[in-house]
Structures are given as C-alpha cells and as structure tokens.
Design a protein around this nucleic acid. Sequence first.
DNA 1: AACGTTACCGGAAACGTTGCCGGAAAATTG
DNA 2: CAATTTTCCGGCAACGTTTCCGGTAACGTT
Lengths: 350, 350
Amino acid sequence: MRSKQTTIWDIAVKLNISISTVSRALRNAGDINPETKKAVLKLADELDYQPNSIAASLRNSKTNIIGIIVPEFIHSYFPRVILGVQEEAYKSGYKLMISQSGESLEIEKENIHAMISSRVDGLIMALSRETDEYDHIRSVQKRGIPVVFFNRFADELQGSKVLVDDYKGAFEAVDYLIKTGCRRIAHLAGPEKLTMSGNRINGYIDALKLHGIPVLEELIIPCDFMEGKARQATQHLLNMPDRPDAIFVVNDPTAIEALICLKENNVKIPEEISLVCFSNAPHSTFVDPPLTAVVQPLFEIGKTAARLLIEQITEGKAFVPSIKKLETEMVIRKSTRLVSPAGQFPSSLR
Amino acid sequence: MRSKQTTIWDIAVKLNISISTVSRALRNAGDINPETKKAVLKLADELDYQPNSIAASLRNSKTNIIGIIVPEFIHSYFPRVILGVQEEAYKSGYKLMISQSGESLEIEKENIHAMISSRVDGLIMALSRETDEYDHIRSVQKRGIPVVFFNRFADELQGSKVLVDDYKGAFEAVDYLIKTGCRRIAHLAGPEKLTMSGNRINGYIDALKLHGIPVLEELIIPCDFMEGKARQATQHLLNMPDRPDAIFVVNDPTAIEALICLKENNVKIPEEISLVCFSNAPHSTFVDPPLTAVVQPLFEIGKTAARLLIEQITEGKAFVPSIKKLETEMVIRKSTRLVSPAGQFPSSLR
DNA sequence: AACGTTACCGGAAACGTTGCCGGAAAATTG
DNA sequence: CAATTTTCCGGCAACGTTTCCGGTAACGTT
C-alpha cells in the first residue's frame, strides 16, 4: 500500500483556493496574483510536491518522452550515442525511455509496441541486424510518431536519418592501407541487409579499383555482428594459401575478435597483416597494438538525432525529414604500417 | 498535428457495445461473452489498437515502469547489469526508464525528480561518486517507492542492496599477489564516500597484515573514478624512489589508465610490476597483457536487483529489505606473475 | 406463474492534470 | 458616480482507462 503522494488538490484545499489556480501557479501561466503564486510555490515545496506527469501526459496527449531502441548497449558504441541524445533531450525537457532489441526482430517489435503504448513523442532507433521487414516501424509512423534513424537503417524507410559517410570512410581506410603497401586486402563486412554494410563495401571496392587492385569475392566476408563469427572468418582468411596482408573491419567488436584471432595465430601486426576498423570504441586505443581506425563522432550523432527528432515533434506535419551525413576521421595508430613514399602509387597505375 | 490513435471507445462504437465491455474483452476479465470477446479482439487487431498505458497508469496508480539511475554507461559495467535487470523486468511486464547521473549529484537529484514525476513503481540505482547526502533518495522512499541499490550505495541508506563481496574479493586479489612474490603492493582506491571503496581497502589491508607486510599509507591512493586521476596516481607511484612491485586497482577503467601509464613508462608487466583489478569489463581480456582480475557476476547482479525490487513492489509494506551478497571469482591472466611455491609464505610469517 | 439464478452488459466515477470560459471584484476611465 | 476595463479566480470538461455496481434478459426451478 503506497502512501499517497501530494497532488495539486491537496495544495488547493490547504490554501482554500481552487485546483485551477494551483495549476496556474505551478506552471506560471498568466492570470495569477503574485501573492497566491508565491504561497502555492511555498506550500508545494514544503509538501515536497512532484507533479504527476502521467496525468499531465494524458491530459495533454504529450508525454515528453523520447523512445530509443538500439540493438545492444554493452559495446560502447550505442551508449555513447545515447549520451548525446540525452544531453540534447534533457535540454528541451524530454526524458528517455531506452530499450534494447538484442539484435532480435521479435524483441524489436515488442519494444516498438511498448513504445507506442507508452505514447512516446518520438522514437530514435537503430535497427537490429535481423530486421528485414518494416511494418512495425511504419505502424509507428502511421500514428504520427516521428522516427529518426541512425547507424542502422533501411533505404526504403521514410524518416530523418543521421549517418556517417560510410562510403568515404571505408574508401579512405582502404586507400590508406594501399598507400602503406598492402595489396591483398580482406574485408570483414556487416550484415547484408543494412545499408551501412553496403556503403562500406562499396568504399572498399572503389578504393581497390582506383588503385587497379582486383576485387576478390573471397576476401569479402560478411560477419553479421554475431559473436564468434569474426573469429571464424579471420581464421578462414589465415588458412588461405595466399594470406591477405591487410584486413579492413566493419566495426569495433568485430575488429577485436579479429585481433584476438590474429594474435592467437602469432601473426605480427602490422608487419604481416595490417588491421583497420570502422569504429569509435575507445578500445581501439588500448588494445595491443592500438588500432588504426575510422572514427565516428558518436556524441554528435546522438545530439543531431535528438535535435532532428525534437524539431519534427514540435513542427509536426510541416517538418520534412532530412538526412544528415556526418564526417568521419581517420586516426592512424599502430596496427598499420607507415606510408611508403615509393609504394604510394603502384607504378602499374601511373 | 498527430493523427489520433484508436481507443477502446472507437472499438465500442464500431461494435455497438459499451467501452466497459471492450475493456473487459481486452484484458480478459470475467463476465464476457466469448463471441463478443472474439469480435473485440478481431477489430482491435484490424485497427492496430495499442492500449494507452498512460491512461491505464493513471487509473491504476501503477505504471509498470522501473527506473534505473546509474552514474554512466559508457563503460560496460552498468550496461551489463542493466541487461540483467531488463531480462528480469520484461518477464514480469515491467518497462525500464534509464538515466545517467554522469557522476554528478546535481543531475542525480534531477533524475530522481523525473523518476518521481513519472511515477515509476520502483527504482534501482547506483550512487554517483559525488553523492554524500541522501535526502533526495529518502524522499523517494518516503513516497512508498521501493529502492534497490547495487554496487554504489551508502550504509546509512535503508533498502535492499545487491553487492559483491568486496572485502573478500580484494583480500583474495592481494593475497594472490603476495603469493606470487610481490611485497610492495600499491592500491588505487575508489571514492572515499562509497562503502565499496572502504571494503576493498579493508580487504587489501587485511591481506597485507595476514602476511606480515606493513601497510603504507602512501601506497593507498584514492582515484575518485575521474578520468586522468589514475594515470596521475600511477605516475606518482612510478616516481617513488622505491617503486611498488604490484598494483591492486579498484575497478576497470582505472586499471586501463594505470596500464597505459605503465606502458608509457616502459614498465614490464608483470615482471617489474604486477597488475590486478576488481572488475568485469571484457576489456581485461584483450588488453595487453590480459589482466588478472576479480570478476563480478554483472548480469546476475541486475537480475537479483530486479527480482528484489519487483518482490517489494508487489508485497508492499510487508516486504523487508534484504542484502544479497554475490560471490566474485578470481581470474588469473597474464598481468601477474606465477605463484612461486617457495615464496608463497614468507618465512618471516611462519 | 412466480421466483431465483446465471450470464452479460452499460453507466458512471475515478485517477491528476490543464485550459477554456464565464464571472466577481477591483481598478481605471470619462 | 457610472461605465468600462483589468485582474484574478473557480467551475467544468476532457484525456483513456478500469472497475464497481446495478440492471436486464433468458433460463431453470418449484
């Protein structure tokens, strides 16, 4: 039996005024005597009154809650994005309701339903790796609840999107590898359904093509973000009669797995095989060797997504969804060789 | 302008029955004709009806939301605990509202207010490192909202607590270091306000005492979980004329910093200095060298906390808060030396 | 035929807010 | 001093549910 919380009604009775007056005093809407207002605020403070936002939400048909659905948050990627969302959301008086799909479409759907039931004002999400149908998401949008995607999305879905330049980042990474003299470059790719994976693969391919290096299907291995998959893939690469001399990895957890596998096989990094990942986990900094990586502005992604969403919430139908593409940055660490001035551009090309 | 969502009222009108009947049909409470029930469910499905849980919460004075406040979730510690909470909570039909205090007392207070306003049914929390007064938390409890603490708590606070055996874990770690031949063991400790820090320090001290090793104040340095602090502290240790031969570190992020600092100073681990941390981040596994650590059952901590909380929510006042102490486990990796059979117990002791 | 029982259903209040609207008192104006 | 405006306040409906309570019709029982 929970002890009853104080309501505006309690305050009204104690001060012998009406609840409307109390309400006005509390949210300082006009038409209120400064004296009464002061009295109300004082009493509210004494009684440790906390407004019942449930009631307010019902009345206003607005919850001031932003829902977030991410695949997971045990790797630091999503938490860091959420940090950005939180910063921006709190500034505008929004609270966060976070849930994880655990990379499962089923759970993603459940989460979506929960978000709808909770009547969130808007939704920020990154799809699970399994998500290949979108009716549950369209159902949210049909209700007029704006959705902003980041990182993991599908082209056929409407809505604002915040992404990084996957193509360019991948291109730069592979281009860099080539400039350090690597020629047989493998790519541990992401789930094929995600737009992101394709873009990174394209960047990878085009960089190879630019330098006249043949693109080999067998060197592109999708890893699906499943634990163990990257290790397997890496082992597979090592078992090849003609080992690659570099691996470009789609994301951070995958890269760590690859790294562990390489070390287990006593492969010297970067002497025998160079490693570059598309990432931003701080892990890259303190593994051995520290990983050269294409880093993403995670915090900024979160802030941007939140800003877009809040705009859309306030502007309503008038708002046109937009796509924000943020820049990545290549950070050179120790998992790649130095750029060889001579081998920078193979003679075959120039 | 948001398109109106369908309500039980819409269903009622379409079927020419009353909203009470619709309500009964949907939550299959008794007194309902199977035929009408079927019709209602069918139409609800067709209209893609999602119950408005805001309204239900208001009516029932129960939100089925569990609030979680943690200091941060960019390190994997808290996310993993939250994973456990989520598993257990979802099973019982609870949703999660998560927020971060960012290790700030001010924000922690704000978060608390938001949780109260949202009328969460219960709260699971780990205090920020700054928290040294507890009125905001007592204010939650006074309202009859149960609170369960984990990891970071204060002894003077009432409520269920889920913790690990900090004392024992620390003791074992230091005991192990001694058995590997270390004699001058430093301790990078946690914020002094947290019970946890004290317990770990005591375990450290008692292990030293057991082996007759003098406890030196200068070797115990509180690190406060602030970025950069551990690095400074480690450097300080290295600058001593008489360097320690081992460091026992209070948690994982701190250990990583220490590790980086040691490496920068070209200190050989574990030959010159051994490193042990109280932790569970997977980081420990893939840094170089992999860290010997006292690991905690993070997922289990979350599940236990959720279970305790839900029990208290359902049982109400009858529930007596309890303290669950979970066991830690020492995992030996490469950052410590091997146990020297000879040096296991210094002769001075036996 | 009168009554009790059963099986369903509808009305209405309540949860705590907010905001419109009208009204009374006070202040301002001519 | 009357008329008008301003200032402040209270009543009331509404948000979408749930649930208590009572009512009606059909059926079975003497």
